[in-house]
Amino acid sequence: MPALSLRQRLLAGESAVGTFQLLDSTMVSEMIGVAGMDFVIYDQEHGPLTAETTLELSTAAQNEDVAPIVRVRENDEAEIQRALDIGAVGVQVPQVETRADAEAAVEAARFDPIGSRGLSQYVRAGGYVGSETYTDDQNDETLLVVQVEGERGVENIDEIVAVDGIDVVFLGPYDLSQSLGIPGQVTHDRVEDLMLRVCERAAETGTVVGAFADDAEIATKWLEAGVQYLTLGVDVALFTERLGDLVDDIDAPQID
């Protein structure tokens, strides 16, 4: 395992690149590591993955020194607790729009004295036997990412970043575009202006910013804007698009 956790690296000012995984395949998790990525987000919000499948995928990822993150279905105490208990090193919470939303995520993801995460050390996160420092270790190493995905969240960004226990504010360009009435237009000036506003505010407060990018060109733009936690693509799209490119590159014979 890496000497520093993903959380510690980000808080030290490093950048990290990962991707979303929807496929229930340990081989995909291993390939993400072989490719040199830092983390993988198991998407339980928009994909079919469950706690049971994510446990096996997390093991495969960690064998390749890839940090497993779970995007839970909603900002729910039980969802967040289970994602962390199975051994994910971080949790990504969707649709955080207010200070209250951010505080609820912290309560669920952090142990006392920061939050009130339910405690059992006889879980994968605790090595199945736990330790005297288990709760402190988890608070030090668990990455809490909150997704700001709408215009309302951007308007409340100062209140959200002020909540102790939040590590990363993640900008979801697709939901941002939808909240602005231009769904899917993730490179539209109005979407990018909102994202840049958050990046600028985060720089003033020392907050880590995350963002999603469909390709390397967009990814580079956001890294240059100060994004540290960069998610590049989704496994199913990357696979499908690459196959499509190969098909397009072949001059297949026409059958009469």
Rank of each mutant, 00 (worst) to 15 (best):
120 S>Y: 08
119 L>R: 06
82 R>V: 08
106 V>M: 05
187 T>V: 10
207 T>D: 08
134 Y>A: 09
75 N>Q: 07
187 T>F: 15
204 E>K: 12
153 G>S: 05
213 A>P: 01
183 P>S: 09
180 L>E: 05
121 Q>G: 07
166 I>T: 04
170 F>I: 01
207 T>A: 11
151 E>N: 13
163 V>N: 10
162 A>R: 10
185 Q>Y: 07
96 V>H: 01
175 D>T: 07
116 S>E: 13
80 I>F: 04
159 E>L: 01
209 V>D: 02
104 A>D: 13
120 S>D: 11
89 V>R: 01
97 E>G: 13
179 S>L: 07
130 G>M: 11
128 Y>L: 12
132 E>G: 15
209 V>A: 07
126 G>S: 05
110 R>M: 12
206 G>C: 14
145 V>C: 06
116 S>Y: 15
75 N>V: 03
153 G>C: 04
145 V>M: 09
212 F>N: 05
189 D>W: 06
204 E>M: 11
76 D>G: 15
99 R>E: 14
150 G>R: 03
156 N>K: 07
119 L>I: 14
194 L>D: 04
148 V>Y: 00
76 D>L: 12
90 G>W: 00
202 A>H: 00
102 A>Q: 01
152 R>F: 10
212 F>W: 08
201 R>A: 14
125 A>H: 00
197 R>N: 10
136 D>E: 15
163 V>Y: 05
151 E>L: 13
140 D>S: 15
196 L>A: 14
81 Q>I: 09
179 S>V: 02
158 D>P: 02
150 G>F: 01
87 G>T: 03
137 D>V: 09
